[in-house]
Amino acid sequence: MSTADNPIAVLVELRDGAVARPTLEALTLARSLGTPVAVWLGTEPDADAVAQLGEFGAAEVRVAAIGAEARYPAKAAAAIAAATEDSSLLLVVSTFLNKEIVTRLAVTTGAGVVVDAAGVEFVDGEVEAFQTVFAATWNVRTRIAGKAIVGVRPNTTTASAAEVPGAASIVPISVQLPATRETITAVEPVAPIEGVPLAEAPVVVSGGRGTGGDYALVTELAELLGGAVGASRDATDEGWISHEHMVGQTGTTVTPALYVACGISGAVHHRGGMQASGTIVAINMDPDAPIFEICDFGVVGSLFDVLPQAIEAVKAHRAN
């Protein structure tokens, strides 16, 4: 298949047909570990995508053109297995679907798996992954014996183009797909949330009960800072904003460089989904709100007073 020295496989994540930013982060991470090789499932990549993968260091783009069959975890796993026989480490973006795919893969290959990792390195020739667990109150380092699969969270590595681009040579992968008991009978596309996907956004501004359902200021600040809009469980349960925006342990787990919690008390399920963020800012009327225990900067006050003033001040700063 390849002559790449210590090939580190990276499963390419696509967003509306283009390579998603967390994949570029994973390629950047892979460069620090060995020679990145991209694994592409689905329809054939276009020239732009291949060029971009090369720019971030991919020596090869291994293409398993299995089309929509890639939606089946067991079939995707078989294609990845065929594409990564020579690789001791596979990196994927930690999503619910990828966790299913790598579980199927590990069952067939015997690989060890760590998901929701913040980073990975080789120590004495063995893979070690690090995570934050228990709502980000502990740091944990896990060694994987033998063949390894690591699911990496978005925003844990800063994506940067390689000094020397990879060749990104296309390597077609042929694979015998296994039969599955399951049949996908309908796929109803979800209109993408406008702007940056929540899980990958470098800035997340979230609104909770304190917004009373009015997301105008939260959205304005998110747009100003180039971020995405999040919400607490309370807000999505009220129907103020769709479930896709929910930050929390059963919604989307986010690890942005900046998290701004507006009118969110900080229930344990919410904290578990955002506590590993870089800098945390909280605005809440209640000085005893648990969110203040974990923030770097807090304002006790009404978001309807604080946000407009902050937005104006940031705009004024930028105008200077």
Binding site: L258, F292, C295, G298, V299, V300, D305, A313, V314, R318
Partner: peptide, 24 residues
Amino acid sequence: QQIVTDTGEGGNALAAFLIEKGLA
């Protein structure tokens, strides 16, 4: 950790924090 109580300048304090951290 810094916690301020808004007495009319909370938004400006927040903006100053973000600017100082290079986040705005």
